[in-house]
Amino acid sequence: MDESQLIARVRAGDSAAERALYDAHVDRVYRLAFRLAGDDALAQDFTQETFIRAFDRLGSFRGDAAFSTWLHTITTTVVLNGLRKVKRFRQREADIDDAHEIGVVQRHAEPDLKARLKQAIDDLPEGYRTVFLMHDVEGYTHEEIGVALGVETGTSKAQLSRARAKLRVALSDFAGEWVK
């Protein structure tokens, strides 16, 4: 059975078809949520929310784009909004903590490549980071990213280029690793 038939059955209220559609896409949705969130509990929450919204709004899916593209538009919206919410909440907590910890000097050991790479990716602006992770790590095309994020394909390419440039500067201490 092809996907359009499966979607028609879901619209008709077939719960087995719902499960089949979920099984076909859950891995990729969860992987993207995990890459962006970096946390299993958050990734599970975001994945669940994505499918709940997708099933509720399936009536508005007209089939102009692939179902997976439509689903990843919902995924990125859910994940990015969710992460902003968590970030704001944690920032408020951190501000309170900072007020109690003035004068405490923290010493950091020299981080290794993995830690530096993580920090450099975390420090990227949200748009650059999202495009970089979707394209270079999860293998989405610029066309898919453009639709999912609601931007032009050219914008996606430009953001990827800037993300790589920023990472190159941030990781310049490790230049020997890639010029071998």
């Binding site: 979920y22 891995d27 995990f34 969130a37 990734a43 599970q44 790479l117 270079d136 990472l167 890639w178």
Partner: peptide, 18 residues
């Protein structure tokens, strides 16, 4: 290419708890 390989370790997903 180096960056793509190295970034695979960033938030490397666990098996999907479907």
């Amino acid at each position: 290419q180096w960056l793509k390989d190295a970034a695979k370790s960033y938030h490397s997903p666990v098996p999907t708890p479907s």
